[in-house]
Design a binder for these strands. Structure first.
Lengths: 248, 248
DNA sequence: CGGTAACTTGACCGACATCAATTATTGTGG
DNA sequence: CCACAATAATTGATGTCGGTCAAGTTACCG
C-alpha cells in the first residue's frame, strides 16, 4: 500500500487524519478517540475481519488496506455489498443494531484501529460531534448502496462495470490510493463479478469490451481510466462530491 | 396537491408510539420531539415528498401511508431503492449529508410529521439517546439495502419477488398495515418492477408463477401469503427480527 | 359509457449464463 | 531457477432467463 504503518499509530499523528478530505477535530474529541482506540489489528489478505452472526466486541476503522462487505445466500451464491477503504468504519451495524447480517473480509493485508463496542454509547453521551459523524458515515454508506442498487437494477453489465470502476477510483483517490486516473486494483475479476452480479466469464468479456472501446486499460492488476468523460457518460455516473468528511 | 395542517397529532398521544415495536422514550425526549415537530404534511398518492437536488429545509417521519425512495438514470430508467412506512424517517441523508441523491414519492395518501432540519444539531447536542436513534435508523436502512442488493445481484426474478413480498409483508405487519399473511398492496406492478429491476411484463408473468405454485394469491391489490415456509425457502429469506426500534 | 391506464398473453430476440477447453499467472518446494 | 500444481483469466459453443414488441383484455374514472 502507499505508506508503511508503524506498530502503533497514534491518533494525534495519524497519517490518515492529515489528509485534507477528513474534517479536523477539536482536541477534546481527538483525545477521546485516542483513548477509545484500544489497539490495532493487522490481518492478511483474504482474512475475515467480522463474521456474520459473530458478535465481535469490536468496532473498527480501516487504517490501511482494502476490505469488502459481502453476504451469501443459503446455496452459496455470494454478493459483494460494498468495498471499504481507509477511513471507513467496519462494524457500525453491529455496534448500533447489535446484529450483523454480512461478513467483512480483507482484500489486501489490512491494518485496522480497534475500538470497544461497549463504549460507543459514551460517544453519543459526551461527544455530539462524533455522534453526528457516526450518523453521517451511516448515511453516506446508504448513499453508496443506493448507487449500487440502481446499478444492479437498471444498468447493463458494461454500464455497471464502468460505474464501479469510476466509483472505486474516486473513493481510492480521495485517500491517496489512486491518482492520475490509475488505480492498483487489489481485487480479482471474481471479486468484481460478485459485486456486479455477473459471472466471472462475463466479467472478463465485459472488461475486454471496455478496453476495446479504449475507455480503460487493465494490465497487471492496474486499472487506468483512458477516457473519463466517455466512461462517465456510458455509466451515467454521478460523483459523490463530499469534499470533507468525518474520520473516527 | 399538498396541504399543511398544524398539529393534528400530538406526539404525546401519537398512535404510532403506542405500538409495541417502538421503543418508549423519556418524557424529556418526548417533549423535545413534540417541540421539534413543527407541523404535519399531508400529500396525495403520487405526490413528490422530497425531490433530488432540492434542498428542502425539512426532515420527516411518516405518520400514515406508504412512500418510496427512487432514483433515475439520465435516460429515464428508474429504480425503486426502498419503500417507506409509518415510523420511517424521510430525508435523513439530506439532513446529515446536506445532499439528496434520490426522490421520495407518496404511494398512498400520506401524512408526515414535519421537523426543521436546522434543529437536527440540537438532537446530537442535547439528546444523546435520540442521536443514537438516528444512527440506529440509518444503520437499519443500510441493512435493508444490503438485502435488496443481494436480491438484485444474485436472485432470479421469481426469488426476488418472493423476497420482496416477504420483506414488505413483515415491515407492514410490525406497524399494523398487514396481518394474517395478508397485505393490502398499495403499489402497482410497475412499482414492483422498478424495485425488482425487471420489466412490468415479466413481473406479471412472475406473479402468475408464484400463484400457480400456490405460494401467494394476488387479487384486487391484496396479497396473501399462502405458504410462508415454501416462500421463505424459495427466497432464502432471513427476517430482520428487530423486536423493538426507535421512533423519532 | 368512452377513454385511459394497468395488466395479460404470445411470439420473438438478445444479454448474460453455463459448460468446457485452453492459456496465463501465481505460488511452492526441490 | 525450474518443475509443478493450483488458481485466475480467456475463449468458444450453446442454452436460458428475462427483454422487447405488439395485440388484446381488463379495470378504473370522469
Amino acid at each position: 500500500m502507499t505508506e508503511t504503518v508503524p506498530f502503533q499509530t497514534n491518533c494525534q499523528t495519524c497519517p490518515l487524519r492529515r489528509k485534507s478530505v477528513f474534517r479536523s477535530l477539536e482536541d477534546k474529541e481527538l483525545d477521546f478517540i485516542s483513548d477509545f482506540k484500544t489497539g490495532e489489528l493487522t490481518v492478511e489478505a483474504g482474512a475475515t475481519i467480522v463474521q456474520e452472526e459473530n458478535k465481535s466486541p469490536h468496532l473498527y476503522t480501516i487504517l490501511d488496506g482494502w476490505a469488502f462487505r459481502h453476504k451469501a445466500l443459503a446455496d452459496g451464491r455470494r454478493q459483494v455489498l460494498n468495498f471499504a477503504l481507509p477511513g471507513d468504519l467496519v462494524g457500525l451495524q453491529l455496534a448500533v443494531l447489535n446484529e450483523m447480517q454480512h461478513t467483512v473480509t480483507a482484500l489486501t493485508d489490512t491494518t485496522l484501529c480497534v475500538f470497544q463496542r461497549d463504549r460507543v454509547w459514551s460517544i453519543f453521551k459526551d461527544y455530539p460531534s462524533l455522534a453526528f459523524s457516526m450518523t453521517w458515515i451511516a448515511a453516506r454508506e446508504e448513499q453508496i448502496l443506493d448507487g449500487h442498487i440502481i446499478s444492479l437494477g437498471q444498468r447493463s453489465a458494461l454500464e455497471r462495470l464502468a460505474y464501479l470502476i469510476l466509483h472505486l477510483y474516486d473513493r481510492a483517490e480521495t485517500i491517496g490510493y489512486a491518482s492520475n486516473q490509475a488505480l492498483d486494483a487489489p481485487f480479482s475479476q471474481s471479486h468484481l463479478s460478485d459485486a456486479l452480479g455477473i459471472t466471472p466469464v462475463h466479467t472478463s468479456r465485459t472488461l475486454r469490451k471496455l478496453q476495446e472501446k479504449r475507455l480503460i486499460s487493465w494490465a497487471k492488476d492496474r486499472i487506468r481510466i483512458l477516457d473519463r468523460d466517455a466512461l462517465e457518460k456510458l455509466a451515467s455516473y454521478e460523483s459523490m462530491a463530499d469534499e470533507c468528511r468525518p474520520l473516527i
